[in-house]
Design a protein around this nucleic acid. Structure first.
Length: 491
RNA sequence: GGCGGGUUGGCGGAGAGGUUACGCAGCGGAUUGCAAAUCCGUGUAGACCGGUUCGAUUCCGGUACCCGCCUCCA
């Protein structure tokens, strides 16, 4: 069995990964707060940990990995967004709006992440379904003297956990020196954080021993991880920006609630996303969602490829140039598969994804096992794609499937017919027209009427259709500048 | 102020103490009616200054610059 090595944020070292129970490898990844479309930054951990999920399934068996990614559907940002909607004329009560808003956002999230080829986690718990577990854990923390009640709030006492700050490598003194901490009157120490807070009448709230209220931000992950994965599990992941305070606080809560367990053994953090070399932010105007990119015409596979071409622990810069390059490479690779006469039907791709019936390349497995070196894996894909023997082609397909660069959502079955599937605009009439024009061109070439032949070729080219004259006749596919309108007047 | 990360050839981007990363672009060639596509060949880069070493882009120290977190954030 391959030994997976992972960079553990907790120790700041690359370590051999040994699961607690190889029969059930357990991973928790922090999911989105659901009040808006997922932006590119939300997508990175989804893709990164999807690759890890796939690798773990490959190594330990598809039925021996439990991957939990939560939806945070109770949060002040959600409340704020719902109030905005009310202010804009939405007559429904706040809780109804919130339910509709979070439901819709979860639906969007699924659509967008599906487009990126991310497999659904084993479990996707919503925070609001685990309020009982949160209240129980908060109660335990109070009983153990790690939390206190003050003015309707329950706060975690950071001084009760000796290791506080270990994950992010900072001491309480350092943090206070930063002096940008909110000092609420109900806090004993500025670094203490909220476990439970009171809700006003119209806000979402649940009855608790401390009055009607709602959970603080961090307790949900501790409670859900505990409920679904146990007090101690293998991997906990998320964006680097969550390392402090979110993950630090999760550790404090979970370890104080279960002093005999160690919570997550391996902590993994992906670096942030940048856009054209700059931090993605609303104020810089370079903030965009996955949906924006999809609507601009970038296939999900292209976005995923760009993500995978940078190692997850380095900042990933999204640039137009990279996306273009990724598209060129993927087109080439899909063309290679298309010409390989493998079964690429949706049914088969579904099967390849669910069962290991196409075997990925060993060097790619080794690259991924080395702390998810996706860039090295891509480099190997280039090598495999150059070869035309049966073994290489199968290893190539198996690796593409493993990396999620091809799957049931990829419209390669259409691609294999005509090439139009890439843009999701498959049109039988168009295909007939192109085939007819190609036939005319062949005819003209036979008659050595090259001006007519070139005229047809140039016309097709200007419509974004690329012709390839192969020894066994012309092939065609849709290029990046496809514009079916330009074929209109052509006969 | 505290903590952390980065700096590789025209561009993107890895690994490894000493042997070609890889891709894109470029250049040369094959092929082609001309192209496209494809194939073959081609690039000795590692911010700066020291140190360790037979040998460092790879290890150690320093300098410069860039970036992130410390506040909601993936």
């Amino acid at each position: 069995m391959v030994t997976i090595r992972l960079h553990n944020s907790k120790t700041r070292k690359k370590e051999d990964f040994a699961p607690i129970d190889p029969e059930n490898v357990r991973m928790y990844v922090c999911g989105p707060t659901v009040y808006d479309r997922a932006h590119l930054g939300n997508a990175r951990p989804v893709v990164v940990f999807d690759v890890l999920f796939r690798l773990l399934r490959h190594v330990y068996g598809a039925d021996h990995v439990t991957y939990v990614r939560n939806f945070t559907d109770v949060d002040d940002k959600i409340n704020a967004r719902a109030r905005e909607m009310q202010a804009a004329g939405d007559a429904r009560d706040l809780n109804t709006i919130i339910r509709a808003l979070t439901d819709e956002t979860i639906d969007w999230f699924h659509q967008d992440m599906d487009a990126l080829g991310a497999a659904r986690p084993t479990r996707e718990p919503r925070a609001t379904e685990y309020i009982g577990q949160m209240i129980a854990m908060i109660g335990t923390l109070i009983d153990r003297g790690c939390a206190y009640v003050e003015q309707g709030h329950v706060l975690f006492d950071v001084h009760s956990y000796r290791e506080y700050g270990a994950l992010s490598g900072r001491s309480l003194e350092d943090m206070i020196a930063g002096a940008r901490v909110e000092t609420a009157p109900y806090k004993r120490d500025p670094m203490d954080f909220v476990l439970w807070k009171p809700s006003s009448g119209d806000e979402p709230g649940w009855p608790s021993p401390w009055g009607r209220g709602r959970p603080g931000w961090h307790i949900e992950c501790s409670a859900m991880a505990d409920e679904l994965l146990g007090a101690e599990f293998d991997i906990h992941g998320g964006g680097l920006d969550l390392q402090f305070p979110h993950h630090e606080n999760e550790i404090a809560q979970s370890c104080c609630a279960h002093p005999d367990a160690g919570f997550a053994r391996y902590w993994m953090h992906n670096e942030m996303v940048q856009v054209e070399g700059k931090k993605m932010s609303k104020s810089l105007g370079n903030f965009f969602t996955v949906r924006d990119l999809l609507e601009q015409g970038w296939p999900g596979e292209v976005i995923r490829f760009v993500m995978l071409s940078t190692h997850y622990r380095k900042p990933m810069d999204w640039t137009e140039e990279k996306a273009k390059q990724a598209e060129i490479i993927l087109r080439k690779w899909f063309d290679h598969l298309k010409n390989s006469h493998l079964d690429l039907s949706v049914d088969s791709l579904t099967r390849y994804t669910m069962e290991p019936c196409v075997v990925p390349d060993q060097m790619i497995i080794r690259a991924l096992a080395d702390d998810l070196n996706t860039a090295a894996a891509i480099s190997r894909l280039h090598e495999l794609a150059k070869r035309n023997d049966y073994e290489s082609i199968n290893a190539f397909l198996g690796s593409m499937v493993l990396l999620g660069l091809i799957g049931p959502k990829t419209e390669i079955d259409l691609l294999s017919l005509s090439g139009v599937g890439w843009l999701g605009t498959y049109d039988p009439q168009l295909e007939k027209k192109v085939v007819r024009l190609l036939f005319d061109r062949q005819d003209a070439r036979k008659r050595k009427d090259f001006s007519r032949a070139d005229e047809i070729r140039d016309a097709l080219l200007s419509a974004g259709i690329v012709i390839e004259d192969r020894p066994d006749g012309p092939e065609w596919h849709v290029g990046p500048n496809f514009d079916p309108a330009k074929l209109e007047g052509l006969e």
